[in-house]
Computed example of a mutant assay.
Amino acid sequence: MAALGANLAIAASKFVAFAFSGSSSMLAEGVHSLADSGNQALLLIGGKKAQHEATPQHPFGYGRERYIYAFLVSIVLFSVGGMFAIYEGYEKIKHPHEIEHWYWPVGVLVFAIIAEGFSFRTAIKESNELRGTLSWSQFIRRAKAPELPVVLLEDFGALIGLVLALGGVGVALLTGDGTWDGIGTVCIGVLLVLIALVLAGETKSLLLGESAGLEDVQKIEAAVVDGHTVTGVIHMRTLHLGPEELLVAAKIAVQHDETAAQVATAINAAEARIRAAVPIARVIYLEPDIYSEAEAAKGPDREATPGGPAPHATEH
Rank of each mutant, 00 (worst) to 15 (best):
A276K: 14
S23Q: 12
G213F: 01
K251I: 10
A19N: 11
E245C: 05
V198R: 13
E53L: 07
I93Q: 11
L44C: 00
L164Y: 11
D155P: 01
Y67I: 08
G5L: 12
T55I: 03
G299N: 09
R131W: 08
S24M: 13
V254F: 06
G307I: 01
L239Y: 14
V80C: 09
S135Y: 07
L173G: 05
A28R: 10
G213C: 01
E315S: 13
G178C: 03
V233L: 13
G47E: 08
A253H: 10
V224F: 07
F139K: 10
D177Q: 03
T185V: 02
M1Y: 09
C187P: 00
A11G: 07
D181S: 01
A310I: 02
G242M: 10
K48L: 03
T133G: 01
A172H: 02
E202S: 01
L174R: 06
G161F: 08
L206V: 06
I93Y: 09
W102I: 05
I252Q: 11
G299W: 09
W102G: 04
E271P: 00
Q138E: 15
E245W: 03
W104A: 04
L166T: 05
A9C: 06
T238H: 04
A35Q: 07
V186K: 08
V193A: 12
I86C: 14
L199Y: 09
D289Y: 02
F118C: 12
I183Q: 01
G63C: 08
T259A: 07
A261L: 11
T314C: 03
Y90Q: 05
G107D: 08
A200D: 08
R121C: 00
S21W: 09
I114C: 10
F78I: 07
L191M: 13
I75K: 14
